[in-house]
Design a protein around this nucleic acid. Structure first.
Lengths: 254, 254
DNA sequence: GAAACTGAATTACTCCGACATATTGCAAGG
DNA sequence: CCTTGCAATATGTCGGAGTAATTCAGTTTC
């Protein structure tokens, strides 16, 4: 059991009806369907107000049960992407109703070709939030926070950003800062965006050699937080976000 | 073998098995269950790692079908509150996995007695984001944006904040500003938080007379945006958020 | 004898398909 | 123009088969 064709699961519906569930990014069948529909919607394949295929029709054309389809729709509804009403069908909601900050929605948005404007919006938000977070972290950090940051920094030095371990260390560093703010709302917000955006870092890395050694810039943030200097921490983090934006932008326009 | 309703969940089982769905805040049956479970989790009734009653057991004790329960769980899973695995059951995830910025999650958090620390976190986030939004709005607004803000301001004057119409006008004013930033991510973020927090305004209003005429402070923001002065707009908005925090805090500690 | 491995039984979730019901857009008729 | 009936479509329900992970007993190894 390996390797199904990415296209359809049309024919061999008998025997083991379950293995077709394992193909999609979602672990479960409905997760796979939700991913499929979610990426389709996020990529602009449906316009707001468009009606999806009916429950029965859709389930038939994908050869899945209505239950699986309904659970997938349930997920999309929970994230504000669609709305179902009897007779009217399931319609795509206007963009402003979407939970654009939901981790899954973010992932779907970046699964296809990310909309350049949306990426800019996200970086603008990061540029607002992350320096402010660094500012708070400089005021509230304790010894444990600093140790986490230091360890992450060391890991970043060991592995470079070209490796998965290095990128994980980068995430750890930022998470340690967010943690030090003692603000859960800030933490989940930035973690969601960061995860989605850092995902594009992979693109960047294979697109071209990394244009600049990121370590010194990270160290500047760390030093400011150690020193308890909110203003310097915010400014240093601002530099970090700007650099990330530049890199991502130049990588995307290729 | 047909006909269900062998047992209704309550005594008042009129021939219509659906009306029991309409009693919960959710429009649908599974929505009502999701709301019930969501508020229970958000209010700290379950600790992270706790296992919910199994599918069969739960469905039986609530006298609803397993399907309805499953769809509710699906919603909670989509919002990162729980995770289901075969044999292990459905467990509550750690708080950092929750999509705290999801509108529904926010609503559930405020449905019971809101955690004071969480409210402070949200206001801290607002204090970061909204002034920055006002700054951007001052740079990017066009005539239509200004007209929307002006109309909302006029409506706020006509009805006071004590009326629902007045609060709607308040929301419109803030939304117009967010709209003028041309940043969808910013818009959905602040709209979600604002809706949840403004919901507490109702508490405030009936708790005591509003302590201060909010109109002049709003006008200051508006004037700065009209003038295209980013710095002044950010500062005036900062004042607005601070006042809202004060009001909410004093209302909550009653 | 204790610890680690292996395998089977248990258990809870996952998926399915058929059926009954409620809602509502649409169109025909008043 | 309003009302009413129809038909399409989503919602809720049910029970069963299938699957996978946890658990624990039995075995092996040090």
């Amino acid at each position: 059991m390996v390797k199904q064709s990415p296209s359809l699961q049309a024919e061999e519906a008998v025997g083991n009806g379950r293995d077709r569930a394992t193909r999609g990014p979602g672990r479960r069948l409905h997760g796979a369907i939700a991913h499929k529909l979610g990426t389709a919607i996020l990529s602009g394949q449906y316009q707001p107000g468009d009606t999806l295929s009916g429950e029965v029709a859709f389930a038939e054309e994908l050869e899945v049960s209505r239950s699986a389809y309904r659970e997938a729709i349930q997920v999309l509804t929970a994230k504000g992407l669609v709305e179902s009403r009897p007779k009217a069908g399931t319609r795509v909601l206007p963009r402003t109703r979407w939970n654009l900050l939901d981790p899954d929605v973010l992932a779907w948005a970046f699964a296809g070709e990310p909309d350049i404007q949306f990426v800019r919006d996200l970086f603008e938000l990061r540029a607002i939030v992350e320096p402010a977070a660094a500012r708070l972290a400089a005021q509230r950090r304790d010894k444990d926070d600093l140790k986490l940051m230091k360890d992450a920094l060391a890991a970043m030095r060991r592995h470079t950003l070209a490796t998965e371990a290095g990128r994980a260390a980068d995430r750890d560093f930022h998470n340690a800062i967010l943690n030090a703010t003692r603000n859960d709302a800030l933490l989940v917000l930035t973690a969601s965006i960061g995860a989605a955006v850092n995902w594009t870092t992979q693109f960047k890395q294979r697109a071209r050699a990394l244009p600049r050694n990121p370590i010194p810039d990270h160290v500047r943030v760390y030093d400011a937080i150690v020193a308890g200097d909110p203003q310097a921490a915010a400014e240093a983090m601002g530099v970090l976000v700007d650099l990330a934006l530049e890199d991502t932008a130049s990588a995307m326009e290729r």
